[in-house]
Simulated assay, not measured.
Amino acid sequence: MKLIHKQRSTLLPKNPIRLLEEATEIWMQWRRQKLPLYLFLGISINLFIAPLVYAATDGGLSRPQSWALGLLGLGTIAISIYLFFVMFVPEKF
């Protein structure tokens, strides 16, 4: 019976120091770029909101319309929070 040798994954570097450097670089990129994180969180929250909107309308809206209403509601809440902070803490902006 032959043993099959699995090849090491080429996605991970063989040097642990290089792995640590790449992880640090990814962490620093994440800290600088907040928009992808915010978009991901908005879409994730909409996973819970859209079915609630769809159920509340008793089938009066289609699924894409309920997703759009959920995103519209999240956008409205986000803009109102932003404007609240701009009005009461203007020196940050």
Score class of each variant (00 low, 15 high):
A55I: 08
L72F: 13
P64Y: 09
F88P: 01
F88N: 04
V89Y: 11
V89D: 10
G42I: 04
I43E: 07
S62H: 09
Q7S: 12
R31Q: 15
K92A: 03
L74V: 13
A23Q: 12
A55G: 14
V89P: 01
L19T: 11
L69H: 08
P90K: 00
I79R: 14
R63G: 05
P16I: 04
S80I: 14
L47W: 03
L39D: 09
L69T: 09
I79W: 10
L61D: 01
S80V: 14
T57G: 11
S62G: 12
L61I: 04
G42E: 07
Y54R: 13
L19K: 13
D58F: 15
L37K: 00
L47H: 04
F85A: 04
F88W: 02
A55W: 12
F84K: 14
L41N: 09
G42P: 00
L37R: 02
L20V: 07
Y54M: 10
M28P: 00
V53K: 00
L19M: 13
G42Y: 03
Q29A: 12
P13W: 10
P51N: 10
V86M: 12
P16K: 05
T76M: 14
A68I: 01
R63A: 11
Q65C: 08
A78L: 10
L35D: 12
E91L: 01
S62C: 06
L52R: 09
G75K: 06
S44I: 03
P16L: 03
I43T: 08
A68Y: 02
E25Y: 06
Y54E: 13
F93N: 06
K92R: 06
V86D: 09
L20G: 12
E22I: 15
N15W: 01
W27R: 03
A56D: 09
R18W: 07
P64A: 11
G42A: 11
Q65R: 11
L35H: 10
M87T: 05
W27A: 00
I17H: 03
L11W: 02
S9H: 08
R18A: 12
L19E: 14
W67G: 07
